[in-house]
Design a binder for these strands. Structure first.
Lengths: 231, 231
DNA sequence: TAAAACTGCGAACACTGATCGCAGTAAAGG
DNA sequence: CCTTTACTGCGATCAGTGTTCGCAGTTTTA
C-alpha cells in the first residue's frame, strides 16, 4: 500500500523538531525546476540545496513522486481563487484558465510532469472546487462537469506550450524539428502540411496569442456547456 | 547539434550488414512497453530482448529519446489512413480520432511519453497530413488548422486515459487517489466537488464512453471549425 | 528514569543512460 | 590485389539515479 503524501501527517509529535518542512522542500524543488528543468530535480540536488544528504529527504517524502505532487500543488496555489464570480460560467472559467495559463508559462516543467491521472493536493482541490463553483449555473451532470475542467486544463497546457516555444528560442531539438519538418514538407509529399506551414509566418500579422486563446476557450466552453441539447 | 533520428540515414553502405533494424528495435520496445510499461523500456532491457549488449543499441540510436521517437511513430503507423473521406471535416476528423483513441487504449504508455512538442516521424507526418486533408473544406488559416489537430489529440489522450482507468482496476495510486478524494470531499469543505462526485456512480446508468467521446469531440470540432465568425 | 517515537545521515545497493576503444568485417579506390 | 575507409558488435566503465538500512542522538510521553 503506497499512500498519497496528503494522507500522511506531516509531523508526529514525539521526537525532535524536523529541520525542514514539506513546503520548504517544495519551494526548493520548484526553484530548481524553474532554473534548470524537471530533470534537475533529483533527490541529491534537492538535498544538496538544503544542505543535507539524500536519505534525509525520506523523512519528509515517501519518494520522488511525492516531491512532484508537492511541486504541482505548490504552483497550483499560485492561482488566485479570491476573485469574485460574475455568474457566466464561460467567462468565469475563461478568466480562471487565463490565470492557470500564466502559471504554466511561469513554470514550464509543469508540462513535463509525468501525467498522473490525479495529482490533487489541497490547492489543486481548491482549484477544482472553484471551477465547479463557477460552473454551478450550468445544467450538466456531475461527471460532465469534471470532463469540462479536464478539457480546459488540456487547452491551457496546450496553449501554454505553443505560446512559450513561440516566444523564446527553443532548444536544439525544437530547431531540428522545424528544419526537418520544413524540408520534409517542401519535398512535396505532404501538400496540406506545406500549405498549413506556409500560412504561418507570412499572411496575417500573427494574431495576439492571448486573444487566440480566449476565442478558442470561449468557443469550446460554449459548446460543452450547452445544456439540454442531447446531441 | 543533436539531430533527430529521422534526419540520419539508417545505414551507410560501407561496412558489414547490421544485425538488426530500427523497425526491429521499435517493435521490441513497443512489445516491452505494452507488457510492462514505459519504465521497462531501458536500453539494457531492449538489448537483452535482442540478445546483445546495451552499447550495441547506440549503433542504431543516438540515445533513448530516439527509441521513444521510433516507438511513437511505430504505433502512429497503426492508424488506418486508407479510409475514404466523407467531405464533412467534423465527421471525418471524429472518425480519425476514434481510431487514434483505439491506439491509445492499445498502448497505454503513449500517455506516459515525455510530451515533446513534436515527435513526428514518417507515420506521424502522414497522420497529420491526413487530418489536414480532412480539414481542407473548412475555411481556416493554416496555424489554426494545426491548433485543431493538437486540441483533438489532447482530447484523444484525455478520453483514452479516462476510459482505460475506468475499465480495468487501476494501480494502487489510483485507488489511493479515489479514497483520498472521496473522504476529503465528504469532509464538507468542497461541496461542489462532493456533488459532482456523488452524481457519478448513481444517477444515470453511466453513458457509453464511446458516445460521450463522440459527442464531446463533435461539439469541440464544431466550435473550432466555425469559419468566418470572427468572435 | 525508562520507554517510545522520532530525526539526521553515512554507507551501500541495484539500477539507469551513455562513452570509449578495440577487434573484426565489408565495400570502395587505386 | 592490397590498402584505405567506413562500418559493426561489444566488453568495460563512468557518472548519476532512486531507494533502503541501520545506527547514533534527541525529544516527548508514561
Amino acid at each position: 500500500m503506497e499512500r498519497l503524501i496528503w494522507t500522511r501527517p506531516e509531523r508526529g509529535n514525539r521526537g525532535p523538531a524536523a529541520g525542514h518542512s514539506r513546503a520548504e522542500l517544495a519551494a526548493v524543488a520548484v526553484t530548481l525546476a524553474d532554473r534548470s528543468g524537471l530533470a534537475a530535480v533529483s533527490m541529491r540536488q534537492v538535498a544538496a540545496e538544503l544542505g543535507t544528504g539524500p536519505s534525509s529527504l525520506y523523512r519528509y517524502l515517501g519518494g520522488r513522486n511525492d516531491l512532484l505532487d508537492l511541486m504541482a500543488d505548490a504552483v497550483a496555489g499560485e492561482i488566485d481563487l479570491g476573485v469574485p464570480l460574475g455568474g457566466d460560467p464561460v467567462e468565469d472559467l475563461l478568466a480562471l484558465a487565463v490565470r492557470a495559463k500564466a502559471v504554466h508559462l511561469r513554470h514550464p516543467w509543469l508540462a513535463e510532469l509525468p501525467p498522473e491521472p490525479l495529482r490533487l493536493g489541497p490547492h489543486g482541490l481548491a482549484y477544482l472546487e472553484f471551477a465547479l463553483r463557477a460552473m454551478a449555473p450550468a445544467r450538466l451532470p456531475g461527471p460532465a462537469r469534471l470532463e469540462v475542467v479536464a478539457v480546459v486544463d488540456a487547452l491551457v497546457a496546450q496553449f501554454a506550450r505553443a505560446q512559450r516555444q513561440q516566444g523564446a528560442a527553443g532548444a536544439d531539438r525544437r530547431a531540428a524539428q522545424a528544419a526537418y519538418l520544413g524540408e520534409t514538407a517542401a519535398a512535396g509529399a505532404y501538400p496540406h502540411l506545406a500549405a498549413a506551414l506556409a500560412g504561418a509566418p507570412g499572411g496575417d500579422p500573427a494574431e495576439d496569442p492571448e486573444a487566440l486563446f480566449g476565442r478558442t476557450v470561449r468557443r469550446v466552453l460554449g459548446a460543452l456547456l450547452a445544456a439540454g441539447t442531447p446531441d
